[in-house]
Amino acid sequence: MADLRLYAIGIDEVRRMYGADDDSEPVFRDILATAFAPPAPPKAPGLLGKIGPLFKRDPYAPVVNPSNPTPEDVDAFLDGESIDPDRVPAAWRILETLVHGRAWGSIRLPMTPQQVDDVDFALARGGVSAAVGLRHLFQSATEINLVPAQGLRVGWHDNGRALAMADAYRSALTEIDTTEQQEMIAGLVTWMDGFPHWAEVAREQHRAVPDLVGFWVS
């Protein structure tokens, strides 16, 4: 299913995740160790269950999804090493996992490209500029130093534009026709209303104020 995931986090923090510095690496490793902990091996069956032909592979070993990041993927990512082409999807999974772990807030919207266009059209009818539309979010280059992954779009708006989005979407709510779109946009506005508070906390913790960063699998 198409999935749009938005995060409140400074884009410069995101850019520095690949090839992490010494201060950040332990924090990142803790996040990734929790997210990608290997599953517990199943208990081996009793003696009768072991009778049969010999296996080249341990039949009781856990099955690992080949797209899941491996410890080698994590090391290569955090060290800023070159990523093998077949491991690019895993590298982006690592990045988004770190973004999720360090973000001040996040929201997930199941949306196909057609649904995004429909929402943007409804917002435009309510007077919202295309410059703060959902699709336009993914036209801003993130300058993240990773090869793009097939089927994944990543974009961002700075903090000021995120605040402008919230105000514009709020003003357009009464012009939205369908209940489904109204509820979705209202939920998004409520979430984006957290940006001023998150910015205050970020400054107190000497972190960058949050920008709006999006990952869209379409």
Rank of each mutant, 00 (worst) to 15 (best):
P59Y: 09
P39F: 03
D30P: 00
D23T: 15
R57D: 04
P41C: 04
P59L: 08
D23N: 15
A37D: 09
K50P: 00
G52L: 09
G46N: 10
S67G: 09
P53Y: 06
R29M: 12
K43Y: 05
V27D: 07
A37R: 15
V63F: 08
T34W: 09
A35E: 01
P59R: 11
P42K: 15
I31F: 06
P41V: 05
D22P: 04
P66T: 01
G46V: 04
P38Q: 07
S24Q: 14
N68C: 08
A33T: 12
P42S: 11
P42C: 10
D22E: 12
K56E: 12
P71D: 05
P53R: 07
V63Q: 08
L48M: 08
G49N: 03
A20V: 10
I51T: 07
P66D: 04
D30T: 15
P59H: 09
D58A: 05
P42I: 14
E25W: 15
A40E: 12
N65P: 04
L54M: 11
E72Y: 13
E72T: 15
V64K: 13
P71A: 08
D23Q: 15
P53T: 07
P69F: 00
V63L: 09
E25D: 11
P66H: 02
S67H: 13
P66L: 02
N68W: 13
